[in-house]
Amino acid sequence: MKGLMKNNFYAAFSSARVFAAIMILLGIFVTAMDNVIPSLLIGYILSVIMGFSANGIFALEKENASRWRKYKLTAPVSRKEIVGSYFINLLLCLLIGIIFAGIFTYLSIAIHGFPFDRNTDVLNLFAVGISISLFMGAIFFPLFYFGGDEIVEVAFLAISLFSAIGIVMGIVSLLNRMFGPKMTVEEIIMGACIMIICSAAVFAVSYPLCVAIFGKKEY
């Protein structure tokens, strides 16, 4: 497992370092700008969280250019561990995205003050970003193992991203309908928790599904 994690780290790092550099510059820009209209900060939070997650996923596609995916099957690791390492990799990339978003959100608020109506709005933004990322992974990985063609994988990533956004928007609509237009702080927090729990549950279910698909796959 250690070797697989290192492999995923190198794969993700090779693409994520450029993204990280851009996000640092963008973060500095967001922090430097006045946040009276918070759309820039909202955009940054969502893009940095989802972007790092997408980078973590996209790193897998790079392996396809070589026989590495097949080679790994000959190493002393089980297929279950290989799948598990990808899921953990996504969670780590998501964590990096959250840290980036947290740092620059904190700096922006510390310098320019709180730009949102309620404290819970920030929590909601993070919850949306995390949920989209988890849904994206939960949808992408089974498609990745089911398909496995290099060109298709780029399409799979787009399908996963848009599906994840759609699902999260659907959950938000349901929550709005459930709690009504004037939600209390408790209801907003509960809504954010429901969103994260749903996405985490789908993400967790996706793992055994991937193991089952990958177990039957031939390379």
């Binding site: 250690k2 290192k6 190198y10 070589s66 000959t74």
Partner: peptide, 29 residues
């Protein structure tokens, strides 16, 4: 599998790695 060494025709390893990084990965496998 610990006792089996494999070499395939063509690119066995991802191009974005260097041998030092490959060694690091293999050390974990």
């Amino acid at each position: 599998r610990e006792n089996i060494g494999v070499v395939y025709d063509g690119d066995n390893f991802p191009g974005y790695l260097n041998p030092a990084q490959l060694s690091d990965i293999m050390g974990g496998l």
